[in-house]
Design a protein around this nucleic acid. Structure first.
Length: 482
RNA sequence: GUCCCCAUCGUCUAGAGGCCUAGGACAUCGCCCUUUCAAGGCGACAACACGGGUUCGAAUCCCGUUGGGGAUACCA
């Protein structure tokens, strides 16, 4: 039953521009991308902007830039659904002419009353097909009288069956559906009409979309049949859930691609993470490039159950990418964060060295960037509370002055020399190296943790190290309670 | 309410009737490495929702229950 899919395919991603690109949508786009790249064919981007009130042109651009950023490529489009409305109407007229659709003169108010009535009785409301029974003459009279009408699809008899690549054979009882509306009374097509016409005209072979459309598919299937005599292959992806097992919502944190980007998540990491949320490439592999994922991707490998979005794992994966990406690939995505913090651009080699030092210590690009500015700062803010231990030691200022002198005397300001200088002094003073290392770290970086001290000092530089040790000694002498 | 979908560690998952004493990863907790913080290495904890079948044998197949999700618009 599960035959391997053959290419070329024509797939589409069809977001509505009512907000930023959601991670759920991004994942749908990713699976379409993976399938298209794996089998060959075309990825069509279609913006479903027919709800003019909620659609926004800026969002359309946003979505495109988010897709480009994350690494999803489309071959055709973006097509704006709003520009195709006349075509949708035209196809509806054809159905009308063929008797596969009919005019419905019932007012929305009447329908609403009937719906409420049905609800009160605990029944499922289905349009009672009042107008389906209208004679040609009755229809003409109303038309002549200018009575507004909607166009309804005449649902064919029989259960609706279709195959879903993830769920298998689907069978919906006919009475779960009713004669749904194709054209509203203002002549505008409904979503169902638009999607089906567009999918037909664009030659879509595989419809890969969110699970929330599974219940819409029984409407689309007979429409496809009425309009084109041909139905695409469907694959309905499970939804992404929040930690509360509810639909991923804003309360939990970031939900849009844009937000993750601003937090400092790498595009590669987000693509990788989202692709693995519901798909396993096999052999317990988790860190894969887009190339590798394309190679290994199969629709059969997709999971049918909903997945909870695990922020911690995303952060871990992001760190793995930060750790392993060549600097040349990291730099462009890191640059905006550095710029935001006012890091000078004059010495890229030094920035690279600093970044390399902090890679294993940052989960996001933002954290990574935040480590950089202090290397360029004139002076550092020392916190008395964090330095309580150092303040309590009356001998320390003297030691640090001695250390500064040793560092100043080092011929070459590099890690081995600095290391030797400090350890020699510690021996002479008969203290543990750690007794000098910790305060020196505080002096030079205003932090209790961080990269190995000598790497740190070498990058801070001879001049700034001397200055900071001096500053810190002064701070200790001033802040110490008398 | 009705229709539909889903169900393995806390989370993402491997698992296509015997390979399962249920594997990997994140998280958590130990230990190692270490000047600190990370990273890394090693280890521990931890799951087949429940009940019936089918079968010599079931995490895997069937039915039911429960739980979760989705759909029920002249929204998309």
């Amino acid at each position: 039953m599960k035959t391997a899919l053959q290419g070329p395919v024509r797939v589409r991603f069809a977001p509505s521009p009512t907000g930023f690109l959601h991670v759920g949508g991004a994942r749908t786009a990713i699976y379409n991308d993976l399938l298209r790249q794996n089998l060959g064919g075309s990825f069509i981007l279609r913006i479903e902007d027919t709800d003019k009130a909620r659609s926004d042109e800026a969002m359309t651009r946003q979505i495109q830039s988010a897709l480009t950023w994350i690494g999803v490529e489309w071959d055709e489009g973006p097509f704006l659904q709003s520009e195709r409305l006349p075509r949708h109407r035209e196809r509806a007229e054809e159905l009308l002419a063929a008797g596969k659709a009919y005019r419905c003169f019932c007012t929305p108010e009447l329908i609403e009353t009937q719906r409420e009535e049905a609800q009160r009785k605990g029944e499922t409301f289905r349009y009672p097909r009042t107008c389906a029974a209208l004679t040609a003459g009755e229809t003409e009279t109303r038309l002549a009288g200018g009575v507004p009408y909607a166009v309804r699809f005449r649902l064919p008899e029989g259960n609706i069956r279709f195959h879903d690549l993830l769920r298998g054979e689907m069978d919906f009882p006919q009475d779960a559906l009713d004669d749904f509306i194709l054209l509203r009374s203002d002549g505008s097509p409904t979503y169902h009409m638009s999607v089906v016409v567009d999918d037909i005209d664009m030659g879509i072979t595989h419809v890969i979309r969110g699970d929330d459309h599974l219940s819409n598919t029984p409407k689309h299937v007979p429409l496809f049949l009425a309009l084109a005599d041909r139905v695409p292959v469907f694959a309905h992806l499970p939804l992404i859930l929040g930690p509360d097992r509810k639909r991923l919502s804003k309360r939990i944190g970031s939900t849009s691609v844009e937000e993750f980007r601003n937090e400092g998540i790498l595009a590669q990491a987000l693509y990788n993470f989202l692709a693995l949320l519901g798909w396993a490439p096999g052999e317990d592999r988790e860190l894969l490039s887009r190339r590798e994922m394309i190679e290994l991707f199969t629709i059969e490998g997709l999971n049918a159950s909903a997945a909870v979005f695990d922020r911690e794992k995303l952060l871990w994966m992001n760190q793995q990418y930060i750790l392993s990406l060549p600097f040349a690939e990291l730099a462009p995505q890191l640059a905006p964060f550095l710029a935001e913090l006012g890091v000078p651009t004059g010495d890229p080699a030094r920035v690279e060295a600093i970044v390399d030092l902090y890679r294993p210590r940052a989960k996001t690009l933002r954290e990574l960037a935040e480590a950089v500015p202090s290397f360029f700062a004139e002076s550092l803010p020392y916190d008395a509370e964090a330095c309580a231990k150092f303040l309590a030691d009356p001998a320390l200022p003297g030691y640090l002055e001695a250390l500064a002198a040793r560092f100043a005397a080092v011929p070459s300001f590099d890690v081995p020399s600095l290391d030797a200088a400090l350890r020699t002094l510690a021996e002479e003073l008969e203290v543990k190296a750690a007794a000098l290392i910790h305060p020196a770290r505080m002096a030079v970086s205003a932090a209790t943790g961080g990269p190995p001290l000598f790497d740190l000092i070498a990058l801070v530089g001879r001049e700034a190290t001397a200055r900071r040790l001096g500053d810190f000694v002064r701070f200790l002498r001033q802040a110490r309670p008398a």
